[in-house]
Amino acid sequence: MIQVENLFYTYPGNSSPTIKDINVSINEGEIFGFLGPSGAGKSTIQKILIGVLKDFQGNVKVLNQDVSKASSKFYRQLGVAFETPNFYQKFTALENLEFFAGFYNNTRLNLEDLLRKVALENTVNIRVSNFSKGMKMRLNIVRAFLHNPDLIILDEPTSGLDPVNVKKVQKFILEQKARGKTIILNTHNMNVAETLCDRVAFVVEGEIKLIDSPKNLKEAFSRKEIAVLHKEEGKENIEYFQLKLLGQNKRFQQILKGDELIKIHTVERTLEDIFVEVTGRALHDRETD
């Protein structure tokens, strides 16, 4: 679906490239996430993939087309939700969707049905100027799918959403994946990436540091240890033990026999922990959802 080889991009007026030697191949039907902090270059990669930034170096093929020569046919197969929702403020939600649907001949989905999927069914006749940020975001996501495209690119799709709506959006995206859509996400929300993505790429300072599935990453970077919380001389104490040869560990056995055990759990590492370890960078403006 997407092949990127040796991609470099330098913004006009800059001396050094913003995107450096990116190589990635994304398969049909996959949910692929570009993860990284703000300013890492995710949006620049996205702009190249959708054919908006053209003066790049390297080979970029999207939907079997050289993206620098993206045709109208290309845009009929592509759906995009930009980070900032862009709608006619004086149109209602439905009027906006009907307007943008008018660009396409493709089989269209039922618009009111689409709005229902992201809990916007009661806002059909409300002008977008009266929408909250979260409502605009959900409308933005739905619009990317309204012409039934094959490839959908979503930039920070859960930004500004409350936890209930994050779940709804995640469910909607997974439903679309089940219909065979290829979906690319840009996000700095590692929970979203972990829930949705088949594979993720860690992007830092315009480079991809690593590409793998969240499951593989968690396995590979797991410390394979447990945490034991217990009481000792009236005080709570936590100790860590390697899983390997745990049964022979004398200290562990001593705690078990002590009858002051509070809880035992495996030490799970989040995708964010792994990101920090691999890239040496924190995701500063992490969302709370």
């Binding site: 959708i50 054919g51 908006v52 109208s72 046919k73 845009y75 009929r76 592509l78 995009v80 930009f82 900032t84 929702p85 862009n86 709608f87 006619y88 403020q89 943008f100 660009f103 396409y104």
Partner: peptide, 18 residues
């Protein structure tokens, strides 16, 4: 100008009309 301000022009870039 309203379309520029609301980002509609940027969206037009990814529609078949460009």
């Amino acid at each position: 100008l309203d379309e520029k301000d609301d980002g509609i022009i940027n969206y037009m870039a990814i529609t078949p009309m460009k």
